[in-house]
Design a protein around this nucleic acid. Structure first.
Lengths: 115, 115
DNA sequence: TAAGTATATAACTACATACTTATATAAAAC
DNA sequence: GTTTTATATAAGTATGTAGTTATATACTTA
């Protein structure tokens, strides 16, 4: 398969974004499941604005996209990004995030009613 | 082919190192050709200590190895690193560095005699 | 052995960045 | 319409980082 060649400026920018443990984990989770901020909050020991700011950076770089549905904003990987296969080649080496997703689904923050 | 799964801590550390334009370019050059500091100096508009400090970080992370030969220390990619195939998967997307290598060979800093 | 060359280290500085708390915005539920 | 919930933005802070200059170390050559 032909690999996209990425400008060195763009590549280093993406790598810098993924070079943060929190953002890299967010990307690995979003690869498996779209999430809203309140769900990601269950995974990280960190304030809500901190998560929002990380997502902002990922969105500004086009790595994630958002989908506003009612009260929530769902984030997911942006497969339309020109660097998508570059990013996938990186993420394929990152450990499975099922355990973190379990944390989300255990609390299920988008289902407060408990029904 | 089986892809190495890399601990998130180690992966983010490597990605942070590659998230600097200078270091990413150094890695891409070293993929094509071993180099000493004085050769890399021809490529970057930056002081010798700056290059040395970047190489130090790459060496500390095990991404490059050094080979002292007389007056020079030749740096090259460390293929023994446990993350080598992760790094290769990244570097395959980085543009060819032949133009930068031409700059090195034009000046040929390791051949001052001119013979 | 003295001078030149290659590289590393130390100390410093300016800027970037990852958080924090406080507050604003917007939708949903009562 | 007031309260609650989800999210974003603003402002401030502490730390990290990439560069600089000055200097040390080590090898080479005259």
């Amino acid at each position: 398969m032909q690999k996209t060649v990425v400008e060195i400026e763009k590549a280093s920018h993406v790598l810098k974004l993924l070079g943060d443990k929190t953002r890299l984990t967010i990307m690995a989770i979003l690869k498996q499941r779209e999430c809203c901020v309140c769900e990601l909050l269950e995974v990280f020991d960190m304030s809500q604005p901190a998560i929002s700011q990380h997502l902002r950076k990922l969105k500004d770089a086009g790595l994630v996209k958002e989908d506003k549905r009612g009260q929530w904003i769902y984030y997911s990987l942006n497969s339309q990004n020109e660097l998508y296969d570059f990013i996938q080649d990186i993420l394929q080496h990152i450990p499975d995030q099922t355990e973190n997703i379990r944390k989300i689904e255990e609390t299920n923050p988008t289902l407060r009613c408990g029904c």
